[in-house]
Amino acid sequence: MSAAVAGPLAAPAARDEARISPAAHLRHIGALTRRNLMRIKADPESMFDALLMPIIFTVLFVYVFGGALSGSQHGYIQYLVPGLLGQTGINLAMAVGTGLNTDFSSGVMDRFRTLPIGRASVLIAKLVAETCRGLVSFVILIGFAMLLGLEVKTGPLEVVAAVALSLVFGSSMVWVSMLLGMSLRSAQAVQGVAMLVIMPLQFGSSTFASPSTMPGWLQAFTKVNPLSALADACRSLFNGGPLAHPVLMVLAWSIGITVVTAPLAVARFRKRT
């Protein structure tokens, strides 16, 4: 019956049409990641946040608060910049949900959802593209801060490790963000809620100032805040210092967040109309 419609390329492998092989999953994720990267290429302005945010934050905090917080800009840059990795990561991650929310209003998602691909593929491809964005952002952050006087007191491997750890945590937050993006109605709502999540985590942490001057209840919060752990870990990776505890804590948080939110996000993707 499909004789006329079927040309030289007959439908691929009709043997077990329901099954998608791991290789096929990878191909789908690859094709969708390519789409996401091409979208960035087609709309370079969408990279502004990733490119400029690290520069703006570094300049603002180093020159506005540096003197007051640690007596010198130079001293503060060593304290602040490693923590900014996590801060930048979570900011980029939380923006993903807004984009995804918009995607759903365009009809493209309907197309994807009527294709015989795994349901997680679209989201995983999004995650991969965002990780690339994060990587670019981190390279800019570190490069710019080094121009301003940041010293790496350890070695290149430790810097790579700090970037990798920040990407791991950022990825877990991308799942949170995607879940929000698909759960809330409008893109504005997503943005609003994302801010509510980000602000307390960012400022109630050791990222900008040492928690030692904070009141007890806030110190208690900073102790469990994964962004504190990430900032502490990255500081140790740049400046030397205790590593095991903060690194383990970041990894535990990242895994925990991903394990909880990734399946929820995939489920929402299936249900969302």
Partner: peptide, 24 residues
């Protein structure tokens, strides 16, 4: 659909190529 479900940012060719790849 009633609303064209193509990726606005991609070219016509890239839109079709993507779907071809997703269809294996």
């Amino acid at each position: 659909g009633q609303y064209a479900s193509v990726d606005e940012l991609l070219s016509g060719y890239e839109n079709l190529y993507l779907i071809g790849r997703l269809l294996d």
